[in-house]
Design a protein around this nucleic acid. Sequence first.
DNA 1: TAGATAATTAGACAAGCATCTAATTACGAC
DNA 2: GTCGTAATTAGATGCTTGTCTAATTATCTA
Lengths: 87, 87
Amino acid sequence: MKALADPTRRDILKRLNAGDLAAGEIAAACDMTAPSVSHHLNVLKQAELVASRRAGQSIIYSLNSTVVQEFLQELLDFFDIGENDDA
Amino acid sequence: MKALADPTRRDILKRLNAGDLAAGEIAAACDMTAPSVSHHLNVLKQAELVASRRAGQSIIYSLNSTVVQEFLQELLDFFDIGENDDA
DNA sequence: TAGATAATTAGACAAGCATCTAATTACGAC
DNA sequence: GTCGTAATTAGATGCTTGTCTAATTATCTA
């Protein structure tokens, strides 16, 4: 949950939602230094929202759609959406 | 979004989801000083996730279900849930 | 009005966090 | 093996934020 608190990380997730990206590409897109992005990617990774795989020198990051959807489902359950609210 | 980052605030929302509560009741339930809870309630209020009304000496807080649902819908749209993921 | 209770505001302080530069590791090309 | 590129790790710094105590505001009751 805290992983989604930062705007940069949400931006990263949004980009990854459109397609896999290398760490360097993300850094360029976010207009941020590589270490900073690396930090955010690590946070997202620990939250299991993204996965990484090496491809030569690059490391490709991809969105973990399953976990994202599970998280959203939890959130929906949390607020009991679809409940009777007969005022 | 950042309003949901703090565990205490999520706890407050959960309690309010079960029913309206006075500020003091929330403070007691969260085992926290009144000013701290007041701070969190203010954050939630600015995010329009909760609403408040005065009832005598107490101030009653209630969950703003509409905004909560709108927020969840935004989140669902954000990740394009239900999209085609033909790998 | 005076006193008591409920809540907020003001101010301070410590912990957490996002960001940067510098250094290190990993891989590929020569 | 050496050089260059991609990325991470290490370490430092400044800002944000959650928490507290003390003081203030608002309401009710006698």
